[in-house]
Design a protein around this nucleic acid. Structure first.
Lengths: 288, 288
DNA sequence: ATATTTTTGTAGTATAATTACAACCAAATC
DNA sequence: GATTTGGTTGTAATTATACTACAAAAATAT
């Protein structure tokens, strides 16, 4: 029969399920909850099984699918399958015996996984608040140490192009000194994978005292840093390799910061385009 | 032709299809070819449709599925759905009108896509050669400028922990000076997204003259840099946002370097474990 | 309490996936 | 040159699965 008009589906299925959840009727909600509890399992379930597991009947499952603007149960299963982290891939740590292709595969899969996990789990409201704070900032500073210094530097390297006064410090002394000079309206973006780096904590405390807004980016939940920050973006990810060099969370941190940057740059492109273009042109002469 | 039945599912379905293709019978091959011609389409086909499109019968389709070690047609569809590049996601540039959730989605999807593209396309042989060169290196230097300086720094931050003499320079003067002091057996890892940054090219030339092995990491194919390098790893990716701040390729570059690092660290863990442990313990005191 | 609407499940129907088996084809044998 | 044999393929029946029509049940309003 005639194909349904292709609806633009900005959200993923699981997100849509969560979105319609309140508007669902009791028995349909049971289906939704069963699904959300273990989406992975639904893929290999028949409609009868899912109905049974949810303690309801098949037609209810179908009605639930229709609420999601899907043609039926099959399409639900297919949609979930597409969305779930890369199929058979189970998060695996790199072993000493792994050959290069295996390491390559594992690390890249883990990175991809971390990205899609974050895409699903991260609270967009937090990002929104962060962008608003950055947009209003008279000055932005980026602090990070060790591995996180790289992230801070990357952030700095993006944001300064917008013409906003920026600076980046990885030296703790410079950080506290600089932090003491901040004032209300200024923003400090503090990056710490552990969320408990002493020096960063101290710098953040000083910045807060100066009246600055502090955005924290960490790789763990409920850290000492998050207690101090106005906005904390926690990027959770199971590392595939040596925890010593936390790669996946670093990638996700960089990506998150890029989202902040692009949103900000786009939102105020009118103001910033000239600056961006100038920077861009300045670089051309550096090429062969 | 002994039929060894020792198939581990390391590969993806599509790869498996290609692998078994020669071993298939005429009519089954027709199914395989129809599938490979347009995997996307199969997802919404019934077994009858696929059989018809392939010019064969349903049982043949099933037999084909079984050859892939799948339980049946349903599982084939589900597997393809899981594997295909993030569903309906078409590479889209961020538009000025996009809201934060949309930007978030687009950028993360683009990053994930770039990773899986690289995983599929990148020549593992190149990585292998790079690891061998690094493993044999008496000294490793990392050069990068602008955005690539961040990548170089991250690389440095990883490798120096192995106890190998390392250094990282983003200043062109330091680069040429340091490059002139390299000797045979030393390795220079030069990072340049464009592959045509003048200063990097010059430093690489000097390093080559000193007898060092040069590994290049770029974001484009056939660049001036790749002509100079002993080993060039080109990471190709369509950028989702401002080309000014090439995010996706940077992430992929970082991931590639991590693969080099982990492979090296694992391969010689015996030698390096002590060093890694020491570094790790040294950091603990920095935490709260 | 009765009518009306909404929600839900039962029972049946249609469709799709799978199996059993027979027809087919090609090569080897008599 | 017919006949057997092995493998390959499709027809037809079987089973499982998704879906629909409708009526029972629950909730709400009158």
């Amino acid at each position: 029969m005639g194909k349904k008009v292709k609806k633009v589906q900005t959200h993923t299925i699981l997100a849509r399920v969560r979105a319609v959840l309140p508007a669902l009727r009791a028995s349909e909600r049971k289906v939704a909850e069963t699904l959300l509890r273990n989406p992975e399992a639904v893929i290999s379930k028949s409609i009868t099984q899912l109905a049974e597991d949810a303690g309801t009947s098949e037609p209810t499952v179908i009605r639930f699918c229709r609420k999601l603007e899907l043609s039926g149960y099959m399409e639900l299963k297919l949609s979930i399958a597409r969305e779930l982290p890369s199929g058979a891939y189970i998060h695996e740590n790199v072993a000493e015996t792994d050959t290069l292709p295996v390491v390559f595969h594992k690390l890249f899969m883990a990175a991809g996984e971390a990205l899609s996990e974050t895409l699903k789990a991260l609270d967009v409201g937090l990002l929104d608040r962060a962008v608003k704070a950055l947009a209003a900032a008279g000055r932005i500073e980026f602090y990070g140490q060790g591995g996180s210094a790289v992230v801070a530097r990357d952030a700095y390297h993006k944001f300064f192009r917008l013409g906003i006064p920026c600076s980046c410090h990885d030296d703790p002394h410079m950080q506290v000194m600089s932090a003491s000079l901040l004032k209300a309206g200024d923003v400090l973006l503090a990056i710490s994978h552990t969320g408990s780096t002493r020096d960063i904590l101290e710098s953040v405390r000083v910045a807060k005292e100066s009246g600055a807004t502090v955005i924290g980016i960490t790789g763990a939940d409920k850290t000492p840093l998050s207690r101090l920050c106005d906005i904390t973006i926690s990027v959770l990810s199971k590392e595939a390799a040596l925890v010593l060099a936390p790669m996946t969370s670093r990638l996700v941190q960089l990506a998150v910061i890029d989202v902040l940057f692009v949103t900000l740059a786009m939102g105020s492109l009118g103001h910033h385009r000239q600056q961006l273009d100038r920077v861009k042109r300045a670089l051309i002469g550096k090429r062969f």
